[in-house]
């Protein structure tokens, strides 16, 4: 292209200008990223090799924090509890999201009203939800156990019984499935009608349609929700803090989650070094999970179009 050659000097100058322009516009994010992410990220790695209580200077202790963590019963407790939420609660929630989405995809009059109703519980702030459920699940006075008793069903102590605390959290979480359902719903509505029609002509029943049309079409959304759900599970904090009323982990520490333990070590016990090591282990876990999911997703996520 002779034209481009002739203007080479100009385009070079222009691309130089473009670079500074682009960088300038992106500078709020870049500065924030350097100051509030990169530097703290590296600092926390350094702190994880020290003993540090904020008031005195950090003292280098090598791998001691990490060694101690691997002998720390509470660490394992927190990890087990968090894994329960990640690998049991998240899949249950995803299935619920999908079922609600399928329900809200039915074409009847007034469906918009139902969608609003189903979404409403997700609007309620976590702290209000937690206080509310503390009352609903109250073993003696709560409305749920009153209902269960009047039906002659067993009435567990819910948030006071270590075997029921995490299931209680799952139940609470299911009421917020309207949010995930709406994301699924948007994808559901993007499936061309012709797909269903063609399948019907071939004699497909509802299961075939679900298995071979809907699930593949929704798989990118499932990937998104799965990753966000797992990362969210590793950060559960407010619910545990409120439901246990500040008592670390509640009955038998059954709600001692990773983020709760980390907060407690850092800001209650002021073991900043130890907590930083916990944070780095969390980081490695989250990265590993994300990599594994992305790798396996090649097999089960179906991208339409290209």
């Amino acid at each position: 292209m002779p034209w481009a050659m002739r203007h080479n000097g100009l385009t070079l100058k222009r691309s130089h200008k473009q670079f500074w322009l682009g960088l300038g516009f992106a500078s709020p994010f870049i500065i924030g990223f350097l100051l509030l992410t990169v530097i703290p990220f590296l600092q926390s790695l350094y702190f994880s090799f020290t003993e540090y209580d904020i008031f005195t200077k950090p003292k280098w202790i090598g791998l001691e924090n990490y060694v101690n963590i691997f002998h720390d019963e509470r660490f394992y407790k927190a990890l087990t509890n968090t894994s329960y939420m990640a690998f049991i609660a998240v899949p249950i929630t995803l299935v619920a999201n999908l079922l609600i989405a399928l329900l809200l995809n039915i074409k009847v009059k007034g469906i918009a009203f139902y969608r609003t109703v189903y979404y409403l519980p997700t609007v309620v702030p976590a702290i209000a939800t937690s206080i509310l459920w503390l009352w609903i699940l109250n073993p003696d006075m709560g409305i749920l156990n009153n209902l269960l008793r009047s039906l002659g069903l067993p009435d567990p102590a819910w948030l006071l019984d270590p075997n029921f605390t995490k299931p209680s959290l799952i139940i609470m979480g299911l009421f917020a499935s309207g949010g995930g359902a709406l994301i699924y719903l948007a994808a559901l509505q993007g499936i061309p009608k012709e797909f269903y029609e063609a399948a019907s002509i071939d004699g497909a029943n509802w299961w075939h349609k679900l298995r071979y049309i809907i699930l593949p079409a929704l798989s990118p959304v499932t990937l998104f929700q799965l990753i966000m759900g797992l990362i969210g599970a590793f950060q559960i904090f407010t619910e545990s803090f409120i439901l246990t009323n500040g008592a670390l982990g509640g009955p038998d520490q059954s709600m001692l989650f990773y983020a709760v333990y980390l907060y407690n070590e850092a800001f209650v016990n002021l073991n900043m070094g130890y907590a930083s090591a916990l944070a780095w282990i969390l980081f490695v876990i989250v990265v590993l999970i994300t990599i594994v999911i992305f790798k396996t997703s090649l097999r089960w996520v179906y991208y339409g179009g290209e």
């Binding site: 691309s15 473009q18 670079f19 322009l21 682009g22 960088l23 516009f25 992106a26 994010f29 870049i30 990223f33 509030l36 992410t37 530097i39 703290p40 990220f41 600092q43 926390s44 702190f47 990753i227 990362i231 590793f234 950060q235 983020a259 980390l262 850092a266 800001f267 900043m272 907590a275 930083s276 944070a279 780095w280 969390l282 980081f283 989250v286 994300t290």
Partner: peptide
């Protein structure tokens, strides 16, 4: 804006979406 590095910035933005806040929380504090 077409500039060298915009894809890098976009990549960073996506990556920070999965970075758990707890990792930077303590030094930031």
């Amino acid at each position: 804006i077409k500039w060298k590095g915009r894809n890098v910035v976009f990549g960073i933005i996506i990556a920070t979406m999965i970075l758990p806040g707890q990792v930077t929380m303590i030094p930031v504090y």
